[in-house]
């Protein structure tokens, strides 16, 4: 069986400038495959080319070179769109409509027959957690609610492939978890999901594989665990009732806020740090892993192929994992 999404040398170049047109490469020739039934994360910083790739796949912009096929259909084939769902980044809809009206409109355009429309609309709204909003126009929706409407329209016609551009954007922690659950349930239904994000923890918790894009170039494709295996993480330890010097030289960084002190330590030295804290009779509040983004990791590896402009110096950017996958029992034991 062929891959769900096959991208062969897809590239995009814009001309910028008024008098003298200069080329600006948004996406360098991209070769990639997403297998059927896979949850595939598309990672990279803002401006890395993620949205460009997804827009190319959706036919919203046209490639400078290369081609792509989704479910064995060329991306220019309108029949392809009957079988895929798409959520654009920060979606905006006709604000004079209510959510059921909007979804009914999209259901009509997707060819869902009249007998099934209402049921599909109801199901999609319930699935994204929107209830009791039947009479509310979309202009009165919050950003998070609009994101949910966007997700509902993407899954409304039961597509085989779902493409989501920053699906967690604008959502609160509960909303983010619900979206993760939704993606997981779509995977359980056998759907193929391609979603872009710049947050590693989202990709790590959901994806079978990820691709990392940097300055329009594909850097790597693989499993998150494989890609981060050699990344030495850092941990943030928060405590109280002990002096800031309690961790001694183990703390890379110390910050005091209120009654608490937050220290960053290397992951390898966490045990020693917790023991030092116990000796100082400090009270442990939390231990949170700090994860670097994959892109940052690749920058730090000093990859000579990386082509950064003057205004794109590597920035030290850390992502704090929202739901730390940490052994709490071990922490409690060490803190005794």
């Amino acid at each position: 069986m062929s891959a769900a999404i096959e991208i062969a040398g897809l590239s995009k170049q814009y001309s910028v400038g008024f008098w003298r047109k200069r080329p600006r490469i948004a996406l360098q020739p991209l070769h990639m495959e997403v297998q059927r039934g896979e949850v595939f994360g598309y990672l990279g910083h803002n401006g890395a080319g993620k949205t460009t790739t997804l827009k190319l796949l959706m036919g919203l912009i046209f490639p400078t070179a290369g081609s792509a096929r989704v479910l064995n259909l060329d991306i220019g084939d309108p029949a392809m769109k009957e079988r895929i769902g798409f959520l654009p980044e920060q979606p905006y809809f006709y604000d004079y409509l209510t959510a059921p009206e909007l979804l009914t409109y999209f259901a009509q355009l997707s060819g869902i027959n009249a007998g099934n429309r209402e049921r599909r609309v109801r199901t999609a709204l319930i699935r994204v957690g929107l209830r009791g909003i039947d009479r509310l126009q979309l202009r009165k929706f919050s950003k998070g609610m609009l994101q949910r409407v966007g997700l509902a329209q993407a899954i409304l016609h039961d597509p085989e492939v779902v493409i989501l551009d920053e699906p967690m954007s604008g959502l609160d922690p509960i909303g983010r978890r619900e979206v993760r659950d939704l993606i997981q349930s779509l995977k359980d239904d056998g759907k193929t999901i391609l979603f872009s994000t710049h947050i590693l923890s989202d990709a790590e918790s959901l994806c079978d594989r990820v691709a990392v894009l940097q300055k329009g170039r594909l850097r790597v494709v693989g499993r998150v665990s494989e890609l981060t295996a050699s990344v030495q993480g850092r941990m943030e330890v928060t405590w109280r009732d002990a002096p800031a010097e309690a961790l001694g030289g183990l703390a890379v960084e110390n910050r005091a806020g209120g009654d608490c002190i937050r220290s960053v330590v290397l992951e390898a030295e966490l045990d020693a740090a917790l023991q030092a804290l116990r000796r100082a009779r400090g009270r442990l509040i939390s231990v949170t892993p700090i994860r670097r983004s994959l892109e940052q990791y690749f920058l730090e590896q000093g990859d000579t192929e990386t082509n950064l402009g003057r205004d794109n110096e590597p920035r030290l950017q850390f992502q704090t994992s929202e739901t730390p996958p940490f052994d709490t029992e071990r922490i409690a034991e060490l803190a005794k």
């Binding site: 827009k55 029949a79 798409f86 654009p88 979606p91 355009l109 966007g150």
Partner: peptide
Amino acid sequence: EKRTLYTLLAHPVR
């Protein structure tokens, strides 16, 4: 401008 077209053209609309 409002990007409402993105979702519209993501459906099978020529």
